[in-house]
């Protein structure tokens, strides 16, 4: 498993997981992508969702499942996940663009409208992106959620931005 060897999940590993939405669901609009593929004792994501779209069926160590038709892609779960492993992807953002929302607990925070370098799960820059939203409210408890606009074909690749250096 790539996750154990290199510290990042490969797309093929992810696609078989119950936290990863189907292709059809991606085509319908914003949806939470739960990249949590090990049985660890953790469940705040379930309570984070107002729509009951995240389920942990058995014991607390079971992996979270996304209920595709209940998820509206609001992104509340992103900041609640202690593992920072939940993203919201909107493949239908606009013609030829997708958007990806992710947790970003570093300073300085990017500003709306800023041009940023989008990175994949390996931390490698794969394309440019534009910051379209930064939410850092009290409920998120110091886990800001950043949304960037990226080329549509990178929707299942981009999972963050290159950290920005101070000064």
């Amino acid at each position: 498993m790539a996750l154990l060897k290199n510290g990042y999940i490969s797309l093929s590993e992810l696609k078989n997981e119950k936290g990863y939405p189907s292709e059809e669901r991606f085509n319908e609009g914003p949806v939470a992508v739960i990249e949590c593929i090990q049985e660890i004792p953790c469940n705040p994501c379930v309570e984070a969702c107002d729509f009951g779209a995240i389920e942990i069926e058995g014991p607390i160590t079971d992996k979270p499942k996304i209920i595709e038709d209940k998820c509206i892609g609001c992104g509340k779960c992103i900041a609640k996940c202690p593992g920072l492993a939940i993203f919201v992807v909107d493949k239908t953002h606009s013609e030829s663009f997708a958007s990806v929302s992710f947790p970003y607990e570093f300073l300085p925070l990017p500003d709306k409208g800023m041009e940023v370098e989008a990175v994949n799960r390996e931390g490698k820059v794969v394309c440019q992106g534009e910051v379209i939203r930064v939410i850092n409210n009290k409920e998120f408890d110091r886990t800001p959620v950043v949304t960037i606009k990226i080329p549509e074909d990178k929707f299942d690749v981009v999972r963050g931005i290159k950290r920005r250096k101070e000064k």
């Binding site: 990249e35 593992g83 492993a85 931390g123 963050g160």
Partner: peptide, 9 residues
């Protein structure tokens, strides 16, 4: 894995 993934990212 999630801790590993966040620093790799």
């Amino acid at each position: 894995g999630v801790h590993a993934a966040k620093i790799v990212r």
